[in-house]
Design a protein around this nucleic acid. Structure first.
Lengths: 226, 226
DNA sequence: ATTTTCAGGATATGATCAAATTTTGGACTG
DNA sequence: CAGTCCAAAATTTGATCATATCCTGAAAAT
């Protein structure tokens, strides 16, 4: 056991089940676990150096968020996206994200917009360098920042759940196609936000969402899913 | 071959954490737990006669579905709806449920529609008798049946999450106002489904959703929420 | 092909420890 | 003297772990 010491020093901020949840969530969100890959409790206990109870709880949470999937028997795995699922995700994201963008636009301060621009800049760098991991992180960060500005907890939670469902596949797509061909309506969104044009901002985000999901769909079709 | 033979007649039961989850979910969904009410692990262990681990896992699941809420310190309670939350719910339901209705209409068989009518009939009886509990159950059952016909797991799961968030408040509203004044666009929906008019069915369900949510909003406003 | 065996892994329990809430008992103030 | 407030003990509740039991799937044996 390297450094898992419960009752000492500074370790008493977040409970273990919360930390495990966050780590496992990021593992799924950024595609460190591939679609179809089995997820075992004991595997995670070993991988994350945590106890069994916190791991179980994290798995339950992520399962009910759609990030993981029960397999009838008592096994759990990362779900494989079918094109039917992808259609549902695309519809839901098109409904929710433009709304969040409108709300964000209503509430955004100058500082908020600057932070978004900063994130978008890091995203451009990641694309330029071909760094898939950084691309995925900053792309999510951009949208997530927008949600935070919108201050709409329920819609934000819904959106997070949707991200968790296509995160693993997005990673697969990027690994296959590189970062060059990835679209990005972020600058259009930011420009519209600065000018207070809610319709244009919402439409830009909608396009961003659709383009991303279409990329995933095409890549999945190539891989031979029905 | 369809019926595999269990070695023991009693052995085919669902795991404890699943049973606890379902019971606790229904407790929230049908308002047996009031908004704001604290939910303790040990209280549920006593109330449901289950072990600590299954209860814990059920609480985690329901928390990530929005049915329960962390209270900063490690307590959990049934969330109290604010009108901001209600607006988000109303938006999300208006986006999702009409879509599910359209999908259901595409796939519904004659038998499906008859089952919906049967449920709606039981709902009418519950209204007539003023049986709030039965009203809540059958109203949910109607919508849930529609989701099942639509065969869209992701949108269905999103919708279930939304129901869990306003279930407790809906109970409060019904308890306060009785069942007489409750609106119901179900017959309009069914008629449109029979005639294959997707637009009309979707719009009817949208109205049904809005009317229900508006009832909740008005009742909450009366109770003095911002 | 059917049954048996077996190992890996999931489920569930209760004990134990830690944190937060409540209670209690006084000391201080008006 | 009564009331208020604060601190510390007591109690309740949550978090974690180690362990025992039970399933499942697959290999081995008949």
């Amino acid at each position: 056991m390297p450094e898992s010491r419960p009752s000492n020093a500074e370790t008493r901020r977040a409970p273990a089940h919360q930390q495990v949840y966050e780590r496992l969530r990021d593992l799924v969100l950024f595609g460190d676990l591939a679609p179809g890959q089995p997820v075992t409790i004991q595997g995670l206990v070993a991988r994350l150096g945590a106890g069994m109870t916190p791991v179980r709880e994290a798995i339950r949470r992520l399962t009910s968020e759609g990030a993981l999937e029960f397999q009838g028997n008592r096994r759990v795995c990362v779900p494989v996206l079918t094109s039917a699922h992808l259609e549902e995700l695309m519809f839901a994201r098109q409904a929710i994200e433009p709304k969040l963008t409108r709300k964000a636009l209503e509430r955004a301060t100058e500082d908020d917009v600057q932070q978004l621009e900063k994130i978008d800049k890091k995203l451009d760098e990641a694309i330029h360098k071909g760094d898939v991991g950084a691309y995925l992180k900053h792309n999510f960060e951009f949208h997530n920042r927008l949600y935070a500005i919108a201050d709409s907890p329920i819609l934000t939670q819904l959106s997070h759940g949707l991200w968790l469902r296509f995160g693993p596949s997005l990673r697969v797509v990027c690994g296959r196609m590189g970062t060059q061909s990835l679209p990005d309506q972020h600058k259009e969104t930011l420009d519209a936000m600065r000018k207070g044009d809610a319709d244009r901002a919402a439409e830009a985000i909608r396009k961003d969402v659709v383009q991303g999901m279409v990329q995933v769909r095409e890549a999945l079709d190539l891989a031979g899913n029905p």
